[in-house]
Amino acid sequence: MRVAMTVWGDRVSPVLDCARTLLVVEMAGSKVVEKALEYVEAGYLPGMIRIIRKHGVQVLICGAVSQELANIIETCDVELIPFLAGDAETILETFARGQSISAFAMPGCRCAGGCRRRNDWSTLKTSGDRSR
């Protein structure tokens, strides 16, 4: 499974709308087996979508995202897991192991409708088949 995350240094980028770096990883079993960094123009979503399509990304993990951009990304058949914060590698490893990543929710987002409406944090695990 290909998973992408918008990163800022070694952490999740705070806002997807103006993220500049995309970390694309290949997950096999419960491990991250391959990584690639891609750079995009800040705020230029089409560039990010091109990278997502090029790598066949199925899941995009990111920080805060505006509703407009979330809608556009979801039309690209990509599962969006927004409003996460913390160390990128730790989150990806937790996700690869199929464990809940709810502990990495941004402040104010655990109960906020905006980020929970689509994603129930307790179900954000890699268990089961995510291939489309």
Binding site: P14, G43, P107
Partner: peptide, 25 residues
């Protein structure tokens, strides 16, 4: 304005709470 309760904001990195387009740059 941010929608973040104070008890969740205090102690966190400012960019995780403030989430502005200028945080990263």
């Amino acid at each position: 304005i941010t929608g973040v309760p104070r008890d969740e904001a205090v102690g966190r990195y400012c960019w995780e709470v403030f989430r502005s387009n200028m945080c990263e740059g």
